[in-house]
């Protein structure tokens, strides 16, 4: 919780650029330590939409928690604009995979969206306007009085997204946000995410294990290796900005990019095996 309100020039945050430099994370267990992330370095420019894919267990969530300031990296640093991230910085919002657990079940949908705004000390009238606007833009204008658990999974995730965008973040982190919803809802939410990004222009870092999703959504795809994690590949997605579930996915270029990312992810699974063969060979 330290340094949440770290004094940093507001102008620097407005840059919204994210820099991850040499981040390493080692978990200290009882009697044994686990290196989840070895050495990660990348940057995401302000207003960019980058997807991070990697095999399961690649330390994606660890990385995202380090970026969000929820975990302190063992070494290395994360910078948002010009300020070092030491605890959750203002101007950053996170959407978690577990929608059912990230919404406050004792608050209505409206109160859930409003709560972070109260913390930002935004005036009442402006709060109400922001909440209405955010719910409207995710298609939940009728739901503010409902409780989250009265809604379907997809709608709950929409509430979480509305809460994030009402916060007016410079950076939006999304941790496999659609992994637990059905395919139809998932396609809708992907399009929603892209349209919100194009409308609002914040930096988006989107973590997923789904290669199709990464290519469809991202302007860039970063491929992580298996744990201990490093960035293996950084692929530019040169698809048209206007994307549509059927036509975009039918483009030859989409198939090429998808195949390229797929190849990298397959390689990522065995990336350390040469090194591990020399070592203990302790992969499960």
């Amino acid at each position: 919780m330290t340094g949440t309100k770290a004094a940093a020039p507001a102008t620097e945050y407005s840059a919204g650029a994210l820099a991850v430099r040499g981040v390493r994370k080692v978990y200290q267990g009882s009697g044994r330590t686990v290196e989840a992330v070895r050495d990660l370095t990348f940057t995401v420019g302000a207003g960019d939409l980058a997807c991070i894919v990697g095999p399961s267990g690649a330390g994606k969530t660890t990385l995202l928690k380090c970026v969000a300031g929820l975990l302190a990296p063992t070494s290395g640093e994360v910078r948002l604009g010009d300020a070092r991230v030491q605890g959750p910085p203002p101007g950053m919002a996170v959407v978690f995979q577990e929608y059912g657990r990230s919404l406050f079940p004792w608050m209505t949908v409206g109160a859930n969206v409003e709560l972070p705004l109260k913390q930002k000390k935004i005036g009442k009238a402006e709060r109400a306007a922001l909440v209405a606007q955010a719910l409207d833009s995710v298609g939940l204008q009728d739901a503010p009085a409902a409780y989250p658990w009265q809604l379907s999974g997809g709608m709950q995730q929409r509430v979480a997204i509305a809460r994030a965008i009402a916060y007016e973040p410079k950076v939006l982190l999304m941790d496999e946000p659609f992994a637990a919803v059905d395919a139809q809802t998932r396609a809708e939410l992907e399009d929603l995410t892209r349209s919100l990004w194009r409308k609002l222009g914040m930096t988006v870092l989107f973590v997923t294990h789904d290669i199709d999703e990464a290519v469809y959504l991202g302007e860039r795809v970063l491929v992580l290796s298996a744990s201990p994690t490093v960035v293996m590949e950084d692929i530019d997605v040169d698809l048209p900005a206007e994307r549509e579930q059927l036509t975009t996915r039918a483009l030859p270029r989409f198939a090429e990019l998808r195949a390229a990312v797929y190849g990298h992810v397959q390689r990522a699974k065995t990336f350390h095996s040469a090194a591990a063969a020399a070592g203990a060979g302790d992969r499960p």
Binding site: Y27, V34, A36, S56, G57, K60, T62, S227, A276, D282
Partner: peptide
Amino acid sequence: PPDPPATAV
């Protein structure tokens, strides 16, 4: 732990 533990150090 956020992801399954991997390499023991």
